[in-house]
């Protein structure tokens, strides 16, 4: 479902004398439907960079990335938009939303974009928020005013509200208490069970052990060390 072949990434910093930073090379991996794969490695080794390249957020200059039947590397923007809409979900560590939009709306939006009727999309969003212990009294408020842990859960709800066939998870269980951590792991297990291909970064070792079928060390992709 997710296929990465021999990709490399460099950043050219024009405002710092045109310095070229090569941060990754020779990265390859695949994630099959129903499989959960963890990216490991020290921070700064390029886990998030790799995720962002698969998401289409960072440009892929060398090599090939494919999600489902879409070749992300070199795809036209609208192909990536369509991919993100229906196929590829991403739970990042940061919640980026229009201020003043109520939480329920924020979570339901991916479904609205896909054309689901408002009441059903909101019912689905409500179900997830309830599971993630976001009290109903908060639904009408904007999540921008929430605590870090609450924002993270809203972000997770938004990422799981539509059953994406492929999912990227960046530290989904970080900054959560035990009960919520358990809920999130259940959500991930359910996604696996329905056949989603999941690629994630989990610093939480126990979660990694329980959820992941394989681990890939991105240190292997750091330029110079070669794999």
């Amino acid at each position: 479902m997710i296929e990465v072949q021999n990709i490399a990434k460099e950043f050219t910093l024009h405002n710092q004398g045109g310095a070229v930073l090569r941060v990754m090379e020779g990265a390859s991996l695949t994630v099959a439907p129903g499989e959960c794969v963890a990216l490991t490695g020290a921070s700064g080794a390029g886990k998030s960079t790799l995720m962002r390249m698969i998401w289409g957020n960072y440009r892929t200059d060398h090599g090939m990335i494919r999600v489902g039947d879409v070749e992300v590397s070199g795809a036209k923007p609208r192909r990536i938009i369509a991919l993100r809409r229906s196929t590829l979900g991403y739970v990042s560590q940061f919640l980026r939303v229009v201020p003043r939009v109520p939480t329920l709306r924020v979570v339901a939006e991916p479904l609205l974009v896909l054309g689901m009727a408002e009441d059903r999309a909101e019912a689905r969003a409500a179900e997830l928020l309830t599971r993630l212990n976001i009290g109903e009294n908060l639904w009408s408020l904007s999540p921008t005013t929430f605590s870090g842990g609450e924002q993270q859960r809203v972000n997770i709800a938004r990422g799981f509200v539509h059953p994406y066939p492929a999912l990227l998870l960046d530290e989904p269980t970080a900054s959560l208490d035990a009960a919520n951590r358990e809920t999130v792991m259940r959500l991930i297990e359910e996604a696996k069970a329905r056949g989603a291909a999941i690629l994630g970064i989990f610093h939480d070792e126990a979660a990694r052990e329980r959820l992941c079928d394989r681990q890939i060390d991105v240190a292997d992709f750091v330029p110079g060390r070669g794999a």
């Binding site: 369509a82 809409r85 229906s86 196929t87 479904l111 974009v113 896909l114 054309g115 689901m116 009727a117 059903r120 689905r124 539509h162 059953p163 066939p165």
Partner: peptide, 22 residues
């Protein structure tokens, strides 16, 4: 979608994953 009864979400999921957009 509106005509679907029973397990609404399951059916919608199937449909929305396949045809992707409004």
């Amino acid at each position: 979608l509106d005509a679907s009864g029973g397990d609404i979400f399951r059916e919608e999921e199937a449909r929305m994953t396949s045809s992707s957009s409004k």
